[in-house]
Structure formats: structure tokens, C-alpha cells
Write a protein that binds this DNA or RNA. Structure first.
Lengths: 226, 226
DNA sequence: ATTTATCTTGACCGTTTGGTCAGGTTAAAA
DNA sequence: TTTTAACCTGACCAAACGGTCAAGATAAAT
């Protein structure tokens, strides 16, 4: 009955978040969905759509398997949801490739953004790799519209730079593929890089150096900043 | 009993290949194994070890599933056999990276060999990609010994070139990763490239141009042939 | 011609798969 | 307090999975 006791009673469990109407239920739903999505991203990134199992996703998410199906009707629905998330993040990085400034600054910014994305979200990159290796069954529409439109518009920008004599006469698609490949390699082939690095993940310093090397080789390679 | 009858009897089936001892049986075995291996390489390249099924491999190989297990005891044995084949081809390409000539010629030769391998054997490259993305569970020993030794020795060679002032001061690992990534991208992400290329596979001409662009960007990027 | 060794395969087995469901618990609304 | 709506989950199912096997077919050796 002392203030202390009353205080401790309503403290940790009950009084944490009385907040708005239905706040607790909503919070439960959000937390569970996030946990399942995070687990699914890892498992799909490791095994691809077909190789992944809902049982393993449930285990990694630390929920019963039936609960996974309570929040996401089917394995495919869960997969599509994660693919959308990955694409959203990809588009964010793509936006750093504007055409308002000096080519070297633009390319540097884009390469660095993609390298940082590989570092921060390797699972998304690996999931994308699975999807494309398999033949882009789920995402061919997205690639042939959204991604292709974005890429083609950047190709036009690069051709403009070439026409203005700002950089070497390089096929822009070859350049963009090289940037895609190299930046994503640090996520997709991270396990191999780690082995080559004496079984140690790349340190922050090592990764920063790698990023700078990639930028320098590509910029100089196309005749920018030379 | 006439020569004719005897002749016709032993004709089409029996006398086709009397050749050496057991030649026919050996030929059957070889053909079936090759058919199964080719099918398995495709299916594993599409779905990875876990996602691939022996039933699909059998279907693609056009043999009953039980026959797959007659020639290859388990799914894992079949997978390992294909991984070995892929590694052998990889080592062949690696051998083009010798240290007997001018750096630009060596690097050009190696990049071209790897590009050609991606073109000729995309399934092998994709299978390797699955393997590494998954965490190199089956091949970590091979990578940490054979491949690492090869890579480290090339890194020494490149450091030599840098010390002699033949090329820019670039971290050799970053350079090699860029070569791995870019060349393999043309196999692993072939589906994506095809979509960007208006749903057409890269023609021989386009591929030759891409190869030349990759060589030029990288060589110039590290200060060779500039 | 007979034996022997290899090749072939439909049928089958135990396990794992994605997905369902009834019956329960918990928290918000009445 | 009662009702209602949302959340939770062990147990279950049909289909697909990797792998086995017995019985037959074929070709080499005797």
C-alpha cells in the first residue's frame, strides 16, 4: 500500500504503454511482423525461395510455425513482401544518382551509397541475387519497368557526359553493370571475402579502403578525375 | 544359315559397335552420367543445393529418378562431383594469370578468360554463387586452401608491379574482387542483363564489346596502358 | 547356351514440406 | 462484468522429398 509498492505494481508490465486505443495489440502485431520479416529475410537470403522453409523461418523468428502463417498467409506472400522492402531500399540508393552536379561527384556518391547498402543490408542483396540467378521469376515485371526505366535514364545522362567530352567513350551499360557487380559482391560474396581475409570480416577501416579503391578504379577507368 | 541371314541377324543391334571389350556398356554409362551431370548442373544452378530436387534433375536428364541414384549414390555426392568439375574449370582460367609478361597483357588475358568462362559455362558460375551466398558450407576448405593460395600469390605479383611503379598504388584484393565480381556478373545476373537488353540475350558482338569495356575500365583504372 | 555382371525402373518407405484448424488465451470494447 | 475481436499454437493433413529395393532387361564373359 505504500507509494513504492503501488508504483512497482503498475510499473514494468501494466503501465508501460497505456497510450492510445488498442496500442498494446498493435504493438504486438508490429513486433511479431518485424521479427518474422527479419528472420525470413535471413533464411530466404541463405536458401532462396524454394530452399527456404517456413519451419526454419519460424525457428529463427522464435515463434511457432503456425504463427508465421497467422501473420503471412503463404510462403510466397512473405517472400513478395520482403522483395518489396528490398526494392524500396534499392530505390533509395538509386536516388543518390541525380544529374545535378559534376559526373565524378555523382558517380562517387552512387558507388558509395551502393557499397554502404551492401554493408548495412547484405541479406537484401543476397536475396536479390537468388532471385536473379533463378531467372527473376517473381521480379521480372519490376525489373523490366521500374528498374529498367531508372537505368535507361541514367544511361542517357552518361551518354550526355560522353558527348560533352567529360569522360571516355564507354558503353554506359557496361559501366553500370560493373558498379552493380562490384558493390553487391561485398554483400553476396561476403563469405568468400571473409575467408580470404583470414576468416575475419572486413573491419570498418578495411571496408572504407575497399570502398575508396572501388571508387578510384572506376572513376579513373572511365576518364573522370584523371 | 545363309550368310545373308546371319549377317542381318547381327546387324543393327548387335554389330553396331563390337569394338573393344564392354565398349557398349561403358558408352551407356558415360552417356547417362553426362546427361545426369548436365541436368544437375542446371538445376543446382537454378535452385541451390537445398532447393534442387532429385526428381527435377531426373526429369531434365530424361531418366527415371531411381536411375539418378544408380549412378550417384546421394544428392550430396552428385553436388560435390559438379562442384569439383566447376573448380577444375575455374583453375584452368586462373592459369592464364601467370607472371611472365607485361602486367597489362596478363590482366587483360585473365579478365578475358573469366569473361569467356561466364559466357561458356554460366551454370557453373551460378552454382558457385549459390554456394558462396549460402556461406560456402561445402567449399570453405577448397577456398581457404587452393583458392586462397592462388589469390595470395597473385596479390604478391601485383604488389611487385606497384613497387616497380608499373601501376597505381591500389590494394590488390580490391582489384581482384572487382574482376571476380564483374566477370561473374555476366553469368550470375544474365537474366537481369537480358531484361535490360530488351529481353534479348547479349549477342556475340555485344558481349565482345562488354568484354573490351571491362578490360579498358579496369586497366586504365589501375593506371595500366594509360 | 548358360552364366554373370551391369543397367533399368515402378513401387514403395520414412521424413519433411507448406498449410490448416479447433480450441485456447489475452486484451479491447460495451 | 460481459462480450467481442484479435492473438496464439499443438496437432494434424496431403503432397513432395531423398532414398531404397526387388524384379526384370540387356549385354558381356564363359
Amino acid at each position: 500500500m505504500t507509494p513504492l509498492k503501488t508504483g512497482s505494481k503498475t510499473d514494468s508490465k501494466t503501465a508501460v504503454k497505456p497510450a492510445q486505443n488498442g496500442a498494446h495489440k498493435a504493438a504486438i502485431r508490429q513486433e511479431n511482423e518485424e521479427q518474422i520479416l527479419a528472420a525470413a529475410e535471413k533464411v530466404f537470403a541463405d536458401y532462396g525461395f524454394k530452399g527456404a522453409t517456413t519451419a526454419l523461418i519460424a525457428e529463427v523468428a522464435n515463434v511457432p510455425k503456425a504463427n508465421v502463417h497467422y501473420y503471412f498467409s503463404t510462403k510466397e506472400a512473405l517472400y513478395r513482401r520482403i522483395m518489396e522492402d528490398v526494392c524500396d531500399h534499392w530505390l533509395e540508393a538509386a536516388m543518390t544518382f541525380d544529374n545535378s552536379a559534376d559526373p565524378a561527384i555523382i558517380l562517387r556518391g552512387y558507388i558509395e551509397a551502393k557499397m554502404d547498402l551492401s554493408r548495412a543490408r547484405p541479406y537484401g542483396s543476397r536475396l536479390w541475387a537468388h532471385e536473379i540467378i533463378r531467372g527473376a521469376k517473381f521480379s521480372s515485371d519490376y525489373i523490366s519497368t521500374t528498374v529498367k526505366n531508372w537505368l535507361d535514364s541514367r544511361v542517357v545522362v552518361i551518354r550526355g557526359w560522353i558527348a560533352e567530352g567529360k569522360m571516355d567513350h564507354i558503353e554506359p551499360y557496361s559501366l553500370m553493370y560493373m558498379i552493380f557487380a562490384t558493390t553487391q559482391h561485398y554483400a553476396d560474396f561476403g563469405a568468400q571475402i571473409e575467408i580470404f581475409n583470414n576468416d575475419q570480416p572486413l573491419s570498418e577501416t578495411q571496408f572504407a579502403e575497399a570502398k575508396e579503391n572501388v571508387v578510384r578504379i572506376i572513376l579513373k577507368g572511365v576518364g573522370l578525375n584523371g
